Amino acid sequence: MRLVDIEAVEPGQILGKTIFSSNGAVLLSTGVQLTVFMISTLKRIGVTTVYIDDPLYRDISHEDLLSEETKRAVIYQMSETFEQLRSGKTFSTKAVSQSVDELLEDVLKNQNLLIHLSDIRTADNAKFLHAMNVCMIASLLGVNMGFNMLQLKELAIGALLHDIGKLDAPEVEEGRFHHAWRGFDLLKNKREYSLLVAHVAFQHHEAIDGSGVPRGLTGDDIHTYAKITAVANMYDNMIYPQNEDTPALMPHEACENLNAYSNTLLDHEVLVQFMRIVSIYPNGISVKLSNRQTGVVVGQHRGLPGRPVVRVIDKEGEDAVGYSELDLAQHPTLFIESVLS
């Protein structure tokens, strides 16, 4: 399986990763043979890249932190939550908590895996996948920072609902109209939740140096849950920008940008932990090496995110006749020069 720009996808190729609709239902399943109509539809709904089942890379491990079942459940629940609020109803705190329990179970079971955001976004599912990814990243950070189950649950619920105040928020957000205030107001009276859940929504746009919003808090005045959610939120927004005019970054570019905000916008210690759990060069992306060879990333080293294993295909003309794998952890003078997809 390798990541391919939607413009390079050809009819007859096999989809390598399931695409979800906005309510968690399966839009296209892994293994489906793509047609001209399917490719055209994917472009129309805002898909820019897809994973293709390539025989040359079929053995590549693509283990996700979350199972497809859990993803469907979380996306569906976020869709239901937003719809209930949009209809003027209260949302089910119990149902959200149950979804978070499923997510945490997967995260704890797969806590040795690295973060790679590989689910395909559409215009309809983007805000729900964003909420799920921020929750997933924040939860794994919490695990690595030694949080107990109560803390993990508070963090995960807050991270999942961090943008709940964006529902019907005005385009220009100022003062009490900022979505952080609106989210806090929505969550603070939910007796089933700790008040810290509301403060995640309230503080996730605050900055260590006081330049954040809505209250300009600094340093230790910002709760650790919010500091964690801020990193997760910013990373996901860099990989999948919510503004169409903002270019999407590759994971290695996003990580460089995040590190540039250490101790200004973002907490340094949280960033240190984040860099230990993120896949800078995820499996399936094509890269160019400093020896001018090109290949596809096929393996990772936890703790050495910049030194993956790269598979280089040996060709005679247009035909593949074999391959070799370069473990960059064993080749200290060899580097990834650029990402090709």
Rank of each mutant, 00 (worst) to 15 (best):
A156C: 10
G16E: 04
Q203S: 01
T18Q: 10
F37R: 13
V47P: 09
Y235N: 04
L265Y: 14
R311G: 07
A198V: 04
V297K: 00
L217C: 07
W181A: 03
L103Y: 03
H199Q: 15
R58P: 00
I164H: 04
D54E: 14
I14V: 15
K127T: 08
T93W: 07
K153R: 15
Y225K: 03
P251M: 05
G317T: 08
L85I: 14
L114E: 06
G295R: 02
L117E: 06
I157D: 00
A230K: 01
T122S: 13
V4P: 07
E337W: 07
F128H: 06
V270E: 01
E105I: 08
A73Y: 10
I228C: 01
P251A: 07
L160W: 04
M78T: 02
A248N: 08
A123Q: 15
A232E: 03
L258A: 04
V134S: 03
E337F: 09
N144T: 09
L117I: 13
T81P: 00
C255K: 06
N233C: 06
P308H: 03
D101P: 05
L103C: 08
G322N: 09
V310N: 03
D185R: 09
E318Q: 13
G299P: 00
D54I: 08
N263L: 13
Y235R: 03
M250E: 12
A248M: 09
D319M: 14
I280T: 09
F274S: 04
I120V: 15
V312L: 05
P11N: 11
Q203E: 13
Q77V: 09
V321R: 14
T246M: 09
M136V: 01
N237M: 12
N144Y: 13
Q293H: 12
V36G: 07
S279G: 11
K43W: 10
L150N: 15
T90Y: 12
I164P: 05
K190V: 13
N110A: 08
L304R: 03
G46T: 13
L187D: 08
L249T: 05
D236I: 01
Q273W: 05
L328G: 00
E80A: 08
I277K: 06
L140C: 04
H268Y: 13
I45E: 08
H62T: 11
V296D: 00
A254R: 05
Q77N: 10
I6K: 08
A156I: 02
K94V: 12
D319S: 14
